[in-house]
């Protein structure tokens, strides 16, 4: 029940830092963009598969008409119009430790004698809700109305938008992304 209620972080293991480290760093969050299946035919960046129906990687910038994602080692530019959905994880919620606390806490109610009739269900209900909430805390989703990218933009490496004078080919993946890709972690 606990696991079913939780959302797992889609980023490669070790890519997202915990919240207090993410606050000190200046990379974008990990975004998973769902696009229309044929939307990217013709390619937006070298090395991309035209059959792909989604992109995942570091959110680099959100411009008025384009979303930039560092997918593996390639900067992908996606027209906003082809994006059906997008979900970003800003940091690692580390909800596994909270789940451990929940399980041990539930087991600890055996110390409560018959009062565990109350405390065990209380643990199950509260901890399921708490861990599920914790797993979702870093999640930012594409809004359904209005400026759909307004919230997500803030979690890009360049929240101000792609810097005008910046050569896009010079934008590199984060060191964590390279480590994750090449098994250096």
């Amino acid at each position: 029940m606990l696991l079913a209620a939780c959302v797992s972080n889609p980023a490669p293991r070790g890519w997202l830092p915990p919240a207090e480290i993410a606050a000190r760093e200046a990379y974008g969050g990990w975004i998973v963009v769902d696009t229309a299946r044929d939307a990217r035919r013709g390619g937006y960046a070298a090395g991309e598969s035209s059959a792909s129906a989604g992109v995942a990687g570091e959110l680099i910038a959100v411009d008025p008409d384009t979303v930039f994602v560092m997918s593996q080692t390639v900067l992908v530019a996606l027209p906003k119009g082809v994006v059906r959905d997008a979900t970003l994880f800003a940091y690692d919620a580390q909800w596994g430790s909270l789940a451990g606390w929940a399980v041990l806490g539930t087991l600890s109610t055996i110390s409560n004698g018959v009062v565990l009739v109350l405390t065990a269900p209380l643990w199950i209900i509260v901890s399921t809700s708490a861990v599920a909430s914790r797993s979702r805390a870093p999640m930012v989703e594409l809004a359904e109305q209005g400026d759909r990218w307004e919230k997500l933009r803030l979690y890009a490496r360049f929240p101000q938008g792609m810097p005008p004078g910046l050569d896009r080919r010079s934008v590199l993946p984060s060191s964590r992304q390279l480590k994750a890709r090449f098994g250096g972690q």
Partner: peptide, 13 residues
């Protein structure tokens, strides 16, 4: 908030 909630339940237990 999730930690706080479990903290409260832990306190009760």
């Amino acid at each position: 908030g999730a930690v706080a909630a479990l903290g409260v339940v832990s306190g009760i237990t």
